[in-house]
């Protein structure tokens, strides 16, 4: 666990792979949704085009320094989250910068991008952006709670906060996964997962057509492009954490892509069949259903 310069190159490679994976995966997910609805759907490379288009826009505005820095915070949060967590178990190349900190670092770093984004949206001066932030923050407090409890439960179970060690403990057989050794904690964590993936029924934060799109209302051009990049990167980074903690991690990129896709689809599948919750409803939902499961998880360890 010491630093060597070559790790920077390796990390860049991880980043490159994950961004491309994320761009294609999210497009595929949308395409699947379209096919289910009887449509042809977007081309799988549509995300790339949109990204290029947004980088290529000519006129841009800025509402101030924090507005400018907001997307930077956001993307830094996404990249950092990815790079502070080992991506592929057992691979020297894809350990990234996980020597900097353990699970706790990853959990708290999630807020880095959120904070920056919220500040940027705040400085845009748009009231609806502020409403979106208020909704998002209010919802995330309740949604993250089961995760915190689940993480606590499994770190007690494995007696470590080191992600690599947690993954190591799940190797060998599929029944060594936390999913099977500690199903309650996994269920609790999946509450948080569904709650923070910005999909229905928990997407009142960006509720288009109501508060146009929430925090990013004023964002456009390269700002938006950075946020789009984060939008494909961040969920994958988050799924990687869930994968490492509950689903046995990944030992190669093929396993990685299958697992990430499958876990991601959980939120998609739940999302397509549920209408939207209001914020207070989702808070109550998490306190009523997510919290007891989490408490059960830590009591059962």
């Amino acid at each position: 666990m010491t630093f060597e310069w070559i790790q920077i190159a390796y990390a860049a490679l991880t980043l490159f792979i994950v961004i491309n994976y994320g761009l294609i995966m999210t497009a595929v997910v949308r395409k699947i949704g379209a096919r289910v609805g009887g449509r042809y759907g977007i081309p799988v490379w549509q995300n790339y085009i949109d990204l290029v288009k947004n980088f290529a826009l000519r006129s841009k505005i800025s509402h101030g320094v924090m507005f400018y820095l907001g997307p930077v915070f956001r993307l830094t949060g996404g990249i950092g989250l990815l790079l502070f967590v080992p991506t592929i178990y057992g691979s020297v190349m894809f350990q990234n910068f996980s020597f900097a900190g353990d699970l706790i670092l990853a959990l708290y770093f999630i807020f880095f991008g959120t904070l920056g984004m919220a500040l940027g949206a705040g400085e845009s001066g748009h009231p609806l952006a502020a409403i979106g932030v208020s909704r998002g923050l209010a919802q995330v407090t309740a949604a993250e709670l089961p995760l915190a409890l689940a993480v606590f439960a499994i770190s007690l179970q494995y007696q470590t906060l080191n992600i690599t060690e947690i993954v190591a403990a799940q190797q060998g057989s599929i029944f060594n996964w936390t999913l099977f050794t500690n199903p309650v904690a996994t269920v609790a964590a999946m509450f948080a997962f569904v709650g923070t993936m910005m999909r229905s029924p928990f997407d009142v934060v960006i509720a288009p057509q109501e508060i146009p799109i929430g925090p990013p209302t004023e964002y456009h051009s390269a700002y938006l492009a950075l946020m789009q990049t984060n939008r494909v990167l961040f969920p994958v980074a988050k799924v990687v954490i869930y994968m490492n903690l509950f689903f046995g991690g990944a030992t190669n990129w093929a396993e990685f892509s299958i697992k990430v896709f499958s876990i991601y689809m959980v939120s998609v599948l739940i999302g397509v069949v549920h209408p939207r919750f209001r914020v207070e409803q989702s808070i109550r939902f998490f306190l009523k259903w997510g919290l007891p499961v989490g408490v059960l998880a830590i009591l059962m360890v």
């Binding site: 790079l83 502070f84 900190g101 353990d102 706790i104 670092l105 007696q159 470590t160 906060l161 080191n162």
Partner: peptide, 12 residues
């Protein structure tokens, strides 16, 4: 249980 490297975090 875990480890923490403040300088590395700040640098990254």
């Amino acid at each position: 249980f875990g480890y923490w490297n403040p300088i590395a975090i700040a640098a990254v």
